[in-house]
Computed example of a mutant assay.
Amino acid sequence: MTWDELDWPALDRLRDGFLRGGAASGHYWQNASDLASYDFTYGERIGWKWDHVLRELRLRGWSPRSRRIFDWGCGSGIAGRRVVEFFGAATFDELLLWDHSPVAADFAAAAASRAFPSLQVSPVTPGFLASDEPLGLLLISHVLNELSVDALASLRAMLERADAMLWVEPGTHEISRRLGQIRDALLPTHRVIAPCTHQLGCPMFRDGRERDWCHFFAPPPAGIHADSDWVKFGQRAGIDLRSLPYAFFATERTAASTDAPASIARAGETPVPAESVELSRVIGRAEHFKPYARVLSCDAAGLADLELPKRADPALFKQLERTKSPLLYHWHREGNKIVGGEPLAE
Rank of each mutant, 00 (worst) to 15 (best):
W230Y: 01
E174V: 12
L129D: 09
G17Q: 05
S228L: 00
G284D: 05
S25I: 03
G136M: 14
E174F: 11
L316V: 12
A24D: 03
R156I: 14
A222S: 04
V231E: 08
E346I: 00
T41E: 05
W50A: 11
M158I: 02
D150H: 07
E146C: 07
E346S: 02
A164H: 06
I69K: 15
E275P: 00
G208N: 02
R285N: 09
C298H: 06
E44C: 09
S257M: 09
A90M: 14
P314E: 12
D229G: 03
N31F: 04
E133Q: 15
A108K: 11
F317I: 01
G223R: 04
D212N: 08
T258A: 08
P220D: 04
V103H: 01
P117D: 13
A32D: 09
R114E: 13
R60F: 09
D51S: 15
K290C: 01
S276T: 09
T254S: 14
E275W: 05
T172D: 06
P170E: 15
R266V: 13
I283E: 12
K324I: 03
T254K: 15
F317V: 01
R15E: 13
V149E: 04
F86W: 02
S76A: 10
N145G: 12
N336P: 00
D313R: 10
G341C: 06
V277S: 07
D12H: 07
G335T: 07
I140P: 02
L303S: 11
D12I: 05
I69R: 14
P273Y: 01
R156Y: 12
I338V: 08
S76N: 03
W3I: 02
I140A: 13
F116D: 03
V192C: 15
G61A: 07
L186P: 02
R67H: 12
D51L: 13
Y38V: 02
H100P: 07
S297M: 05
A32S: 10
P314K: 13
T323L: 01
L187Y: 15
D212K: 03
E342P: 02
W29S: 03
H332A: 13
A157Q: 09
E342K: 08
E307Q: 08
A23V: 07
S25C: 01
T323C: 01
A32Y: 06
A260F: 10
A293Y: 11
S101D: 12
A110P: 00
L137Q: 13
S141A: 15
W98F: 14
G335Q: 04
R285Y: 09
L57Q: 12
A262V: 00
A89Q: 09
A293H: 12
G234R: 11
L166C: 15
T251A: 15
S297K: 03
D229V: 00
E133T: 15
R311I: 07
I338Q: 03
Q30C: 09
L244D: 13
L328M: 11
L186M: 12
A130G: 13
L320G: 01
D240I: 03
R311K: 13
L54C: 11
C298Q: 04
D259I: 04
R183C: 08
P195Y: 06
G208W: 04
V143C: 14
